[in-house]
Write a protein that binds this DNA or RNA. Structure first.
Lengths: 115, 115
DNA sequence: CCCATCTACAACCATTTGGTTGTACGTTAC
DNA sequence: GTAACGTACAACCAAATGGTTGTAGATGGG
């Protein structure tokens, strides 16, 4: 499997968890330290650390050290990348709709092997 | 957790697998029976069945019986739903960018509690 | 009817995931 | 220097994931 495929895997996997999506929303409103972030969830600090790691490996956030804290901030380009992955799928949808529109302009009772 | 959250979970989880994304692309080009679909992958029929089930529970495809075959077809609204989920996240990004633009118009050395 | 095909589903297995606790290490404050 | 804070990381565990095989139920053709 291609590395690009794996990147899309990581991206969608990171988004497929309500806790992580919530973390993204919180970090968008201003960068937060990991422990500050952890205080918002009913789970251990280590669990939050793991979620942040998943977001980081997906390229959705970056960590920046400031003193003893580690600030988590969202990457504005990340959602654009997710959108591109969706676009790649949606373009196939559109092509199909286009083809169906084309068929409507042609004569009926046509090709039996359209598949 | 909300049911809407769980729906988004299922949606992104279904998209977080290269095999399933490939299945979507194949089905977009024309509805396929499960066994025809299965012939395209180096895994057992049962494994393909499970992938189709994941796509179905995410609302990305629907199955329709024709004779002894089960035709798999993509749901055109599904990608739109995924896009909406991304939009909900991206709107927060945009709001932040907006606010930063606003700050640039204001005087410098301003608020220390912007977070 | 009998057989081949397509599908459904259960049982099982290895790996990953999402959580826990515990320990160690760097940084800040006193 | 010491205590408290913030982080990193390992070990461990239950549950989910992704795969397998096997069995059984519908459906269509000769």
């Amino acid at each position: 499997m291609d590395e690009a495929d794996r990147a899309v895997d990581r991206l969608f996997h990171a988004l497929a968890d309500a806790t992580r999506r919530d973390m993204l929303r919180r970090c968008v409103r201003g960068e937060l330290s990991v422990s500050r972030l952890a205080a918002a969830y009913p789970m251990s600090f280590a669990a939050v650390q793991k979620h942040v790691t998943v977001l980081e490996r997906a390229g959705l956030v970056t960590k920046e050290r400031r003193g003893r804290e580690q600030l988590v901030r969202t990457d504005p380009d990340a959602v654009a990348r997710a959108r591109q992955a969706l676009d790649a799928l949606e373009s196939a949808w559109r092509a199909r709709v286009d083809r169906m529109s084309g068929l409507l302009s042609e004569e009926e009772g046509g090709g039996p092997d359209t598949g």
